Simulated assay, not measured.
Amino acid sequence: MRPTDVNRSPLFYVGDKYKLINEIKQYFPADIRHFVEPFVGGGSVYLNVDAEDYYLNDINKDVVGLHVMLNSYVGRETEFFDRVWEIVDAYGLSCSAREDKVPEALKAEFVKTYFAEYNREAFLRLRNDYNTAHRDNYLMLYVLLIYGFNRMIRFNSRGNYNLPVGNVDFNSNTVEALNSYFYVNASKQTSWHAIDFEDFLNGLNLSQRDLVYLDPPYLITFSEYNKLWNENSERRLLALLDNLSRRMIRFAISNVSHYKGKVNATFLEWSRQYNVHSIKSNYISYHDNTIKNFNEVLVTNF
């Protein structure tokens, strides 16, 4: 299946760049040899950028594991969906992409949350089986992701996936995103990594024909992803970008300079030496699914 005008990641990251990619991409150069993402996340950016090849990294090994698993089914899409349907049917989850099996009485009683009510027990059985016996099964994790709350990836201190059921199921939008992902990746040369951003970038042999795009955790906002980020991380990253610029390697970095009265003074001061482009953002917090008053920017050195 051919992709849509904008290819959305089938990982459905909250706050990813799916809705902003065309705005961001207008600042990218037309000629890119290596497209490099140290914080690839769901992958909505690389999916919509043309380059000769792609070096993709995320510190979250499960995010990378999901991408690697999905890429392994490129050219075997029918097999992928057959295996997903086996899991869905084995646990009795709803699947509106195939049929609407939620009873009308349940829809009437739980008008806005009927998917969660219908799938809760099945989801908990799947989650328990995954945590106790199938921790390395990324296909099972992907199904949990699709049916889980806000479609997030979260584990507790014991390493168990611990999100509750979400109010969504495996729908036609999910199938469309997956088909687009498979189609686009069939023609992309990707290399996947799950290490610290500094080790990742220092291990690449980059040139002036390459582009490094970065969407790091935002220092002054709150989300699960941002818990691993602090002032030292921010300064390490900015120093690394200065080094790239001295070597005439192109970069573009997304960040938030102002958020709910907070100011990222470190980033603001650093950005003055480069080109700053204001971006109409769609950042959404896991703890509060509303768009907040803040300023997102894209900073480039070209």
Rank of each mutant, 00 (worst) to 15 (best):
N60T: 08
S245A: 15
I146C: 08
L228I: 14
T190W: 01
R2A: 05
K112P: 00
V184M: 08
D82M: 11
T132M: 09
R250K: 15
S9C: 14
K112Q: 08
A194P: 01
K112G: 00
E86M: 08
W192D: 00
R247N: 13
Y183W: 14
I59D: 01
T174N: 14
R235Q: 15
E224C: 05
Y13V: 10
W192N: 00
R272V: 00
M152F: 10
S207R: 14
A30G: 07
D215T: 12
R247V: 00
P29Y: 10
A265G: 07
R76C: 05
S191P: 00
W229L: 11
Y259Q: 06
N137I: 02
E269V: 06
M1D: 08
D53L: 09
L70N: 03
D16I: 10
T132H: 12
N137V: 05
G203V: 08
Y181A: 01
S191A: 11
A122N: 05
G159H: 06
W192S: 00
V6W: 09
L163E: 06
R250A: 10
G148P: 06
F302G: 10
V256C: 12
L237V: 08
M152E: 05
E176M: 13
A239I: 05
Y13H: 09
R247T: 02
N202I: 02
N160C: 13
D199L: 13
D196C: 09
M152Y: 03
W85L: 12
R2F: 13
G65A: 12
D129A: 02
E269N: 13
N57Y: 02
V84W: 01
Y55M: 10
L70T: 01
I195D: 03
A108F: 02
S281F: 04
N71M: 14
K227V: 11
L237Q: 00
Y73N: 11
N275G: 00
N150F: 07
K260T: 05
F294W: 07
N156S: 03
Y142I: 06
L163S: 08
L47F: 05
D196P: 05
N60W: 08
F155K: 09
K17Q: 15
E121Y: 06
K17V: 09
Y130D: 03
P29V: 09
S96P: 12
V175Q: 04
P164K: 01
A194F: 04
D5N: 15
Y18P: 08
D242G: 10
S187R: 13
G43K: 00
N162C: 15
V212D: 00
P216L: 11
T221I: 06
D196N: 12
A90Q: 15
V64E: 04
D53H: 14
V263T: 14
T266F: 04
N295Y: 09
Y18E: 07
N289R: 15
V175H: 01
V256T: 11
G75Q: 14
Y55G: 00
F170V: 03
S271G: 05
L106F: 01
E234C: 10
L268Y: 05
L268W: 01
I146D: 01
Q26L: 10
I32Q: 04
L145Q: 03
R83Y: 07
L219W: 12
F149P: 02
N57I: 10
K61Q: 13
Y259N: 04
A194D: 12
L66A: 06
H67A: 05
K227P: 00
I291V: 15
L145P: 03
N179C: 11
Y161W: 12
K227A: 09
N156P: 03
E77H: 12
N264P: 06
N156D: 15
E104S: 13
L141V: 04
L144V: 06
